[in-house]
Write a protein that binds this DNA or RNA. Sequence first.
DNA 1: GTCTATACCATGATAGAC
DNA 2: GTCTATCATGGTATAGAC
Lengths: 202, 202
Amino acid sequence: MPAGGVADEGKARTQILEQTIHLFAAAGFAGVSMRTVAEHVGVTPAALYHHFADKEQLYLDTVKYAFRAKTAAARKIVAAAGDPFASLEAFLLWFAQTLAREGNFRKLLQWVLLDADPERTRQLVQETFSELFAAIQQLANSFKSRYDPHLLSISIISLVAFHYQTQDARKLLPGNRASHDKPATVARHVADLLRHGLGAPA
Amino acid sequence: MPAGGVADEGKARTQILEQTIHLFAAAGFAGVSMRTVAEHVGVTPAALYHHFADKEQLYLDTVKYAFRAKTAAARKIVAAAGDPFASLEAFLLWFAQTLAREGNFRKLLQWVLLDADPERTRQLVQETFSELFAAIQQLANSFKSRYDPHLLSISIISLVAFHYQTQDARKLLPGNRASHDKPATVARHVADLLRHGLGAPA
DNA sequence: GTCTATACCATGATAGAC
DNA sequence: GTCTATCATGGTATAGAC
């Protein structure tokens, strides 16, 4: 098995996955046809079936491929620094940067959360969310706070993830400014809120 | 124009919308066919086209119908109490209860956030998100905190919304307990976190 | 306001040549 | 490993009877 990590991966196969990420990110499983994929990749639909058993497998492999390495970075960041707050801030900045920069990553995450097929959900959550979540939960535990680690982990992820999920929608809502989507701004806001809460005005 | 608020609404039309909510909530615009809707409603596809110009209009009207009244409740709750923290806690509980109880509402919200069509996004955000957001922003302002009102509003919504967005996924992640999805638990956790932050251990 | 019938196109998937 | 050709099915939408 090659360095990639998941089964065998020919050059052509990898190139297909690479070019398919954007399509599934934009329209989801049901919104993308094999013909569209084929056209975009520059082959015929039949050629796709040489590399993937069916559309479902292509989708699963595409999402897994897109998430690989993305979350491995999180582990390192969380494990690196000693002070919990320093780790938290490093993670928040990394997460905000990643979501801001990699729209495909963000959207695929949203598609995974909306997936109606339980088995597909299971596979994707384990392949995608679980490593990221484990890293955050480790961080959450290091605070030795009053909060439940599971709840706190989700809260930390929420504050960054949901902000970028609503990126397009917020442009239509009052009080929006372009600077609100800058990763540094978001990370600082969330770090402040998590550290001090609303109780202590500056 | 009748009390409903949006154009004309016959009895049959309303019944179609009512029964279609669940389908679009589960599978989104691309994942639902007019045949499926017709079968589920108990008519032929042709009958649907008597009430709705096309599939897109059926989708838009369904989402708008599902959101109507849902968010009107939020305004009252936020406006009611005097103390900002009391209002906040009342809102958090209402929001958690609504998302926990009304899975269709929650899922439609997620579909709206993922919609790739800018014009559809514009219509739906204004019809759905904007009233809820205005209520929260009013609340956020009342804290007179150091935080940007827009950012703070999204943070408040994030902590509850994302928690329930990840409901299915979290069942597969470590540390999950059934009690974590009880509205009272979520609301209390979020209220504590927002009030005190991580800085002040109990 | 709902039906039958249907036009017409897109879909996932396969067989078999090269 | 990719092609051409094809199939069966399902997709949106319409015409016109009742």
